[in-house]
Simulated scan of single mutants.
Amino acid sequence: MLETDWSDGWRSAFRCELRAEAVGLASRGWPVMPGTFPTGSEWTGRQGAESDGPRPIHDDWQTSAGSAADHVAEWWSGQPYNLLLATGVVLDAIEVDADLGRGAAAALRAVGVPTPIIATPDGRWLFLVEPGTALRSELADLATLHGTGSWISLPPSPYLHGVVHWRVKPEVCGWRMGDPNLVQDAMIDALTCTAIEAELVA
Rank of each mutant, 00 (worst) to 15 (best):
M1G: 11
L2T: 01
T4Q: 03
T4H: 00
D5N: 07
W6L: 08
W6G: 06
S7V: 01
S7E: 12
G9H: 09
W10K: 12
S12R: 15
S12Q: 15
A13Y: 02
R15A: 05
R15L: 15
R15F: 13
E17M: 08
A22L: 03
G24Y: 05
R28E: 05
M33P: 01
M33H: 12
P34G: 13
T36Y: 13
F37N: 10
G40M: 11
W43N: 07
G45V: 09
G45H: 13
G45M: 13
G48E: 10
D52S: 10
P54S: 12
R55P: 00
R55G: 10
P56Y: 15
H58T: 06
T63E: 14
T63I: 08
S64E: 13
S64Y: 13
H71D: 05
A73F: 05
W75Q: 11
Q79T: 04
Q79V: 07
N82A: 15
L84P: 02
A86W: 13
T87M: 10
I94C: 01
I94F: 03
R102P: 01
G103I: 09
A105T: 03
A106M: 11
R109Q: 14
A110W: 12
V111Q: 14
V113R: 13
P114A: 04
A119L: 11
L126N: 07
F127K: 02
S137P: 03
S137A: 08
L139G: 04
D141T: 06
S153C: 11
P155E: 10
P156W: 15
L160D: 05
H161G: 06
H161A: 14
G162N: 12
V164N: 04
V168G: 03
V172A: 11
N181M: 12
V183G: 05
A186K: 04
I188W: 01
A195G: 02
I196T: 05
A198N: 04
E199N: 03
E199P: 00
L200C: 08
A202Q: 07
A202F: 12
